[in-house]
Amino acid sequence: MRVLLVEDDPDTSAYIVKGLEEEGHTIDHLADGCDGLARAMADDYDVLIIDRMLPGQEGLQIVKSLRRAGRKAPILFLTALGGVDDRVDGLEAGGDDYLVKPFSFSELLARLNALARRPHLKGEETRLKVGDLALDLITRKVCRGGVEIDLQPREFRLLEVLMRNKGRVVTRTMLLERVWSFHFDPKTSVVETHISRLRTKIDKPFATELIHTIRGAGYSLHERP
């Protein structure tokens, strides 16, 4: 999943970011409500996690603005405001779920997975397929030719990005941003190393290669014509 977290408490943010990244998800974090609204308007996410009490702009207003603009990404309110009226206000503003602090990470993850399974909210498929390669975003299983392939979380995310962009060139910079959340070039071979590992699992045991290097540009996942 690609997740946007709008939360101003540094400890809570670090806890969520670490947990979701360990699960193989990509998470962008902003601490200011105005910045969070701008990012949610400009980019597509599978799920949004939004605090109620934020600097810049309050969480309810963020959600109302997103819904008025037609943004349909599922939204989970994560807040210390746990009264019945608070929950009602959050859901009526356009939130899809409401989790009160303190919380357990396992419950947060379960709620995010449940929101991602609602296809009508975003209209996004939860199963990606290229040729005989299939990736399930909910169960996190990858199969090719009926054979299940075991991927590490970062390998799964890398494959997800390539499959979402099937037939298109994905640059190294794009992969660094979407898989590792690097908004700068760390001058390492991390992308090349993970592509090599992914090829060993996805391509080498099979007759047809799907991951192709586009020299001087990046990588593309597609079936050869």
Rank of each mutant, 00 (worst) to 15 (best):
T171E: 05
I149P: 01
R164V: 00
D203K: 10
H183R: 14
T139K: 12
R197V: 00
D150V: 13
G145P: 07
P153H: 11
N165D: 12
L151A: 03
R164A: 07
D203G: 11
M174H: 11
K201N: 08
P205N: 08
D203L: 09
H194K: 12
L175S: 07
H194A: 09
M163I: 04
S181G: 01
T188S: 14
I202V: 14
F156D: 10
P186Y: 09
E160C: 02
R164T: 01
R199Y: 00
I138S: 03
F182K: 07
H183C: 01
W180F: 14
R164M: 13
R140N: 05
K201S: 08
T200F: 02
W180H: 11
T171D: 02
K187T: 06
V169L: 10
S196G: 01
G145R: 11
G146F: 13
K201Q: 11
R144H: 12
R178Q: 15
V170F: 01
T171K: 10
V190W: 00
L198E: 03
P205A: 12
C143L: 12
S181C: 13
L151N: 04
R154F: 01
R168Q: 15
R144P: 07
R144D: 09
L159C: 06
F156N: 06
G146P: 08
L162I: 00
V147H: 11
V191I: 14
R199H: 05
R144L: 07
F156T: 05
V169K: 11
I202G: 08
L137G: 02
V169F: 03
G167C: 08
R199I: 09
E160A: 06
L162G: 10
K201H: 09
R144I: 08
E192Q: 13
K141N: 12
T139H: 10
K166V: 01
D203P: 05
S181T: 14
E177I: 00
K201V: 02
T193F: 03
M174Y: 04
W180V: 07
R140I: 02
T171Q: 08
E155L: 13
L159G: 06
R168A: 14
E177R: 13
D150R: 13
P186L: 08
T173G: 03
L162R: 05
L175E: 04
M163E: 11
R164K: 15
E177A: 14
G145M: 07
L198S: 10
Q152T: 15
V147A: 07
I202R: 02
H194V: 02
R168F: 03
